[in-house]
């Protein structure tokens, strides 16, 4: 039997087309992985420079205490600074006595400057005691214009000379004993005493 080519074509198309019409089921076993990038943790805020620092013999302030012009009234802008001194004194009972020392510039008479420096030092002591520092730990003294930091005849020098200082006049001595690991050089406190 001889089959015509046209018959064969039709036969083949008839076979293929139904197969093409069948719905395929596609089930991909392996997941499409999406890797995300979590945001980087925020950088820690830079530490604020300390306004107040305790050294061996003084409580050093890195900001000026501001007073009303020609008076001993402390401006509100300086309350934060003084509150920090209160915190330090309360947290450091080893500091037994602090001398609060007022200084002025050389504008005006010696007498009035002396009086103003004393009044300003006393005003600071009052503020600190009102905030809870024991009065027995504080004394006040005024030096007027006698102890300038800068003797230049400039506004900058005069601004530098108008100041209040906190000198530690009595404190407990603290002894700390450390043991040093000879291999690592690591230091470990083993004893703390007065």
């Amino acid at each position: 039997m001889r089959i015509r080519p046209r018959t064969l074509t039709l036969l083949a198309v008839a076979l293929v087309l139904p197969a093409a019409g069948c719905t395929r089921i596609l089930n991909d076993a392996s997941a499409i992985t999406i890797s995300g990038t979590p945001p980087a943790p925020p950088e820690p805020e830079p530490e604020k420079p300390k306004l107040v620092e305790v050294t061996k013999d003084a409580i050093v302030i890195h900001e000026k205490i501001q007073f009303e012009f020609g008076k001993a009234d402390i401006k509100a802008a300086s309350h934060g600074l003084l509150n920090e001194i209160v915190s330090i004194m309360q947290a450091t009972p080893q500091i037994k006595k602090v001398s609060v020392e007022g200084h002025t510039d050389d504008v005006g008479s010696n007498k009035s400057n002396q009086k103003l420096s004393e009044a300003r030092a006393a005003s600071v002591v009052k503020y600190l005691t009102d905030k809870g520092v024991e009065a027995s730990r504080l004394t006040s003294v005024g030096h007027g214009e006698e102890k300038p930091l800068d003797t230049a005849d400039t506004d900058e020098a005069r601004a530098k000379n108008r100041r209040v200082e906190f000198k530690i006049v009595e404190q407990e001595e603290i002894t700390e004993t450390y043991k040093v690991d000879p291999e690592t050089g690591e230091r470990k406190a083993v004893e703390t005493g007065n």
Binding site: L26, A31, T33
Partner: peptide, 17 residues
């Protein structure tokens, strides 16, 4: 395209890298 239609199931996996 394809001559046949399809019904498909795919999985997306989310991972923090």
């Amino acid at each position: 395209g394809d001559m046949a239609p399809a019904e498909a199931t795919y999985t997306y996996r989310f991972k923090a890298g």
